[in-house]
Computed example of a mutant assay.
Amino acid sequence: MTHSTVRDARGVILHRPGPRGDCDYAIGVVTTDDNSVLDTFVAEGSNAGLASLATLEHVADFAAASNLRILTRVGHAAIRDWLEQQTPWHVVPDYLHGDNGRALQNLATELLVDHIGAVTADLPPLQIATDASARVGHPGIGIAYVTDRGDYQQQHLADELSVLTGELQAIRMALTHQRATRIQILTDSHTSAQWINGPCHSNNFRTARLVEDIRELAKGRDVTVKWVRSHNGHRLNEIADRLAVSARRNAEAHVADDIRRQISDHIVAGLRRRKPAPGRPPRHETSREDTNR
């Protein structure tokens, strides 16, 4: 085979998290210069890198078998950087600027969204309970979220006085750190749910800004915010409450980080035993915040 027998084509590899955030999907689309589709391929992986790498391998095999030199835009930064350091002939990294490049990316995005929607149609949303805990008359708010698979995060807002602000920050924290695209937030703050779902009537700039931040984080995802009554036996809400309380009390008592982790892991242990994620161990992280956002 000589280079003169190789035809040029264009390709794109994009990735997107699954609806519950516990896996990723990647798609590879190859077209001719006149936008005729030559090949599509979708891979699933435990993270975006693995899914993108599997898709790149398929595109490379397709290019070699079809005598194609595919100018390819790769969305995953680490995979793109690795490809740029190679000396490939059949798959050549390219940014595909211009109308044709944008059209190809839009096509790949549409096909990937349709595929994920079809194969995950019966999956329930990822449920995330959020909460905040305060000590009356004292500064410092503990906030936390926990998912229905046992992932969690906690923070201590050392100078915060407003429980409502803490409730909103817990929701923002959950949407910031969870990649899922289909989410149901459970909050026992009726005001937070009302303001996120409808008009925000707060005259406080920080509160209004938090509501806007949450709405921005929800864009492009199927996110619902539901009010649940506190201390009413809702298991996920009760666990979020205990995590928020422990975040505040541990900070007040200057408990060592490793002990804090043990306490929090014990709180969520029942969730992890009840709903294990096969091949995907639950993730968690804890942090403390010493100043207001």
Rank of each mutant, 00 (worst) to 15 (best):
M1A: 10
V6N: 04
V6W: 12
R7P: 00
P17R: 07
D22R: 11
C23A: 05
G28H: 02
V30N: 03
D33T: 06
D33A: 15
T40R: 12
G45Y: 03
G45A: 05
T55K: 00
T55F: 00
L56K: 13
A60C: 05
A60I: 03
D61L: 11
A64C: 04
N67T: 09
V74D: 01
H76F: 10
L83C: 11
Q85V: 01
H90Y: 13
L96M: 07
D99L: 14
N106E: 14
L107I: 03
T109K: 06
L112R: 00
L112W: 01
V113L: 08
V113T: 11
G117I: 01
G117C: 10
V119A: 11
T120V: 00
T120W: 00
A121Y: 03
A121G: 03
I128H: 07
I128N: 02
A129N: 07
T130I: 08
G142S: 07
I143R: 02
Y145G: 10
D148P: 03
D151M: 07
Y152L: 12
Q154R: 15
Q155G: 02
H156P: 00
H156L: 07
L157P: 06
A158T: 08
D159Y: 07
E160C: 15
E167K: 09
I171P: 06
R172W: 02
L175Q: 02
A180N: 06
I183M: 11
L186C: 07
L186Y: 09
L186I: 12
T187L: 02
S189W: 01
H190E: 13
T191Q: 15
T191F: 01
S192Y: 01
P199L: 10
R206S: 09
R206K: 13
A208Y: 08
E212F: 02
D213N: 14
D213F: 04
I214F: 06
K219L: 14
R221E: 07
V223G: 04
V225E: 04
K226F: 00
W227K: 12
H231C: 09
R235I: 13
N237E: 09
N237G: 15
I239Y: 01
I239T: 12
R242I: 01
L243Q: 06
L243S: 02
A244T: 07
V245W: 10
A247H: 05
R248A: 08
N250R: 13
N250S: 14
A251G: 08
R260W: 02
Q262T: 14
L271V: 14
K275N: 15
P276Y: 13
P278S: 04
P278G: 06
P281W: 10
P281M: 10
P282N: 10
P282Q: 13
T286Q: 15
T286E: 15
S287V: 06
D290G: 12
N292S: 15
